[in-house]
Design a protein around this nucleic acid. Structure first.
Length: 489
RNA sequence: CGGGGUAUGGCGCAGUCCGGUUAGCGUACCUGCUUUGGGAGCAGGGGGUCGUAGGUUCGAAUCCUACUACCCCGACCA
C-alpha cells in the first residue's frame, strides 16, 4: 500500500497534491514555483492540446509564435494592462554571466546590463499587438485569427501544481476584426468552443458567464468565462475569452482602411486556457483510489492484465489477447497489454486505478476455460465477466458509457451543490457548500464586502440569467437578476 | 509579502528538547527460492557529506546565525 493517497474527506488539498504526484502527473521542480510535468501528465495535456487545436482550426484560426521576452516599455502602453500584471513580472536585466574572481561560482556580469529590460511574458497581448500594427493596413487584412501555444510566467506568491504555477503552458488566441460586432461574436464563439471542449471531452459541466468589472482581464472591455465546480464545492475558472474593444489597437496604433477609405482602429479579442485545465480534470472526477479519467482524454483507455503461472501460462493468454489488441486498435482505442512479470496482478490493478485508466481487462486461466474476460470499469469500480467473442464491441460501448457517466455524475454533483439564496444568513451558509445564485446590487463595493465577509466572489453573471426583480443579498438594494457566487481556486 | 510549520537513503517517518560509539524504522531497490484472480512470503544485500552556507565545541542531525525550498492560514492572483 505504499502508493495510497489521503482521502478527500480527510484533507482535500493534501489529497489533490498527493494524487498529482503519485499518479505521475507532475511534481515540484528545483526552480521556485515551477513544476515538472511528467510523461503521463504531459500525455493528457497533449491530448487536450490536440483536440483544442483542431477546434481552433475548424473555426478558422492559424497558429503562430511570438517571443518569450517583451520589451519593458510595451507593458505600460495600455494603462489597465500594466496595472494588472506589473506586480507579477519576472524581469531580465542582464545578458551575461562570468566566473566569480572570489571563487563563488558564476555571477551576473555587471557590465552586461541591458539597455532596456525585458519582461518574461505574463501574456502576449502587447508584443502581438505591436506586431499586428505592421500586419494590418486594410480591411482586406481582416479578420486576423491567430493562436499561439506557449508558456508564460507570472510570479505568484503561492503556487500549487497545475492550479497556479509561476510558469504554465497555455494557448492564447489573439484576433483582430473590422467591426465591434464581429469581435464580440468571436469572443462568444471561443467561449462556446471552450465550454464544448470542457463538457464534451473533459466531462466537466460549466457555467458560462461574464465577469464583473473587478474580475475583468486587465485591458479588456468584457471578460467571459466558464466556471467549473470541483468536488469540494469550490469554483475553478476553466477558461476566459476577452472582448478587448479597441483598447490594444489604440495603445499600439493598429489602424486599417475601410472599404469606404476611412481610417479606423481595429477591434480585438483574446482567449486562453492553460494547464490549469489539468487541475480541473483531476479535481472534478477523481476519488480516494486515484485518478478517474474520461475516456476521451485518457492516454491509455484500456489496459489488459494477464494472469498466469510460470511456464506456458503467459503464452496461452497471449494467444487470446493478441486478436483483441488488434481489433481494439482498429477501433481507434488506445490499449496497453501489461506483460511485465516484475509486478503481480494485484499490484497492477491498484496502479492502473491510481492512474485512472477507464477500463481494465484481466484474462487468466479461469477465463481461458470459460471463454470470458474480466472487465473492470474505473468510474464505478464494477467488475464482471464478459464473453470473449463480444469483448471488442463491448469495450467500445463501455468507453462511451463511462464518458457519459462521468459527466452525469459531475453534473449531478454540481446541481446538488448549486442553490439559490434569499437571505444573508442563508447565503453565508450555502456559499460554504457550493455555488449560490443570489441578487447583487451591481456595485463593486458590495462585491468587495461580500468577499471580505465570506471569501466568496462573484464568479460570473451567467449568460442564461433570467430577468427577475429582487433585492441584493447584502445591501437590500434593487436588482434585476441573480449572479453566481462561490469560493474559488 | 505577514503568521505558523517542515527539511534526515527514492518515498514516508523516528532521533533534535538535554551535543558523545557504527544515525535507526517502514516501504521501495538488488540477488535467490517459493509465488501470481486485489498492492506476495522468506533469506541475504546495497544505498546517507542529516536542505545550503557559516559559527560555537575536543566532538554537531542535535546548539547559534543567515539563506533556500516546500506545506498550512492570510494577503495577492484572470
Amino acid at each position: 500500500m505504499s502508493k495510497a493517497i489521503p482521502s478527500r474527506s480527510e484533507d482535500y488539498s493534501h489529497w489533490y497534491n498527493e494524487l498529482v504526484k503519485k499518479a505521475g502527473l507532475a511534481e515540484n521542480s528545483s526552480t521556485r514555483g515551477c513544476m515538472v510535468i511528467k510523461p503521463y501528465g504531459f500525455a493528457i495535456w497533449e491530448k487536450m492540446q490536440q483536440l483544442l487545436d483542431q477546434m481552433f482550426k475548424e473555426t478558422g484560426h492559424e497558429n503562430a509564435y511570438f517571443p518569450l521576452l517583451i520589451p519593458k516599455s510595451f507593458l505600460s502602453r495600455e494603462a489597465d494592462h500594466v496595472e494588472g500584471f506589473a506586480k507579477e513580472c519576472a524581469v531580465v536585466t542582464h545578458y551575461r554571466l562570468r566566473t566569480d574572481e572570489k571563487g563563488a561560482g558564476v555571477v551576473v556580469d555587471p557590465e552586461a546590463r541591458l539597455e532596456e529590460e525585458l519582461i518574461v511574458r505574463p501574456t502576449s497581448e502587447t508584443v502581438i499587438w505591436d506586431t499586428y500594427k505592421s500586419w494590418i493596413q486594410s480591411y482586406r487584412d481582416l479578420p486576423l485569427l491567430i493562436n499561439q501555444w506557449g508558456n508564460v510566467m507570472r510570479w505568484e506568491m503561492r503556487t500549487r501544481l497545475f492550479l497556479r504555477t509561476s510558469e504554465f503552458l497555455w494557448q492564447e488566441g489573439h484576433t483582430a476584426h473590422a467591426t465591434k460586432e464581429e469581435a464580440q461574436n468571436e469572443t462568444r464563439q471561443m467561449l462556446d468552443v471552450y465550454a464544448k471542449f470542457v463538457e464534451h471531452y473533459m466531462a466537466v459541466p460549466v457555467v458560462k458567464g461574464v465577469k464583473t468589472a473587478s474580475e475583468r482581464f486587465a485591458g479588456a472591455v468584457d471578460t467571459f468565462c466558464i466556471e467549473a465546480m470541483m468536488q469540494d464545492g469550490k469554483a475553478l475558472q476553466a477558461g476566459t475569452s476577452h472582448f478587448l474593444g479597441q483598447n490594444f489597437a489604440k495603445a499600439f496604433d493598429v489602424k486599417f482602411v475601410t472599404k469606404e477609405g476611412k481610417e479606423e482602429f481595429v477591434w480585438g479579442t483574446s482567449w486562453g486556457v492553460s494547464t490549469r485545465l489539468m487541475g480541473a480534470l483531476i479535481m472534478a472526477h477523481s476519488d480516494d483510489d486515484g485518478l478517474v479519467l474520461p475516456p476521451k482524454l485518457a492516454p491509455i483507455q484500456v489496459v489488459i492484465v494477464p494472469i498466469y503461472f510460470k511456464g506456458e501460462g503467459l503464452e496461452k493468454v497471449m494467444e487470446v489477447v493478441k486478436p483483441i489488441l488488434k481489433s481494439l486498435k482498429e477501433e481507434g482505442i488506445s490499449v496497453k497489454f501489461d506483460t511485465r512479470d516484475t509486478h503481480k496482478p494485484g499490484w497492477k490493478f491498484a496502479e492502473y486505478e491510481l492512474k485512472g485508466v477507464p477500463v481494465r481487462l484481466a484474462i487468466g486461466p479461469k477465463d481461458l476455460k470459460k471463454g470470458t474476460v474480466e472487465v473492470a470499469r474505473r468510474d464505478t469500480k464494477e467488475k464482471y465477466f464478459q464473453p470473449i467473442d463480444s469483448i471488442v464491441e463491448h469495450v467500445a460501448g463501455l468507453l462511451e458509457d463511462i464518458q457519459d457517466n462521468i459527466y452525469s455524475k459531475a453534473a449531478a454533483f454540481k446541481e446538488e451543490h448549486t442553490k439559490g439564496a434569499t437571505s444573508w444568513e442563508q447565503f453565508k451558509e450555502l456559499v460554504e457548500q457550493g455555488f449560490v445564485y443570489a441578487h447583487w446590487d451591481g456595485t463593486p463595493e458590495t462585491e468587495d464586502k461580500i468577499k471580505e465577509e465570506t471569501k466568496a466572489t462573484i464568479r460570473c453573471i451567467p449568460l442564461n440569467q433570467t430577468k427577475e426583480e429582487g433585492r441584493c443579498i447584502f445591501s437590500g438594494k434593487p436588482s434585476q437578476g441573480r449572479v453566481l457566487f462561490a469560493k474559488a481556486y
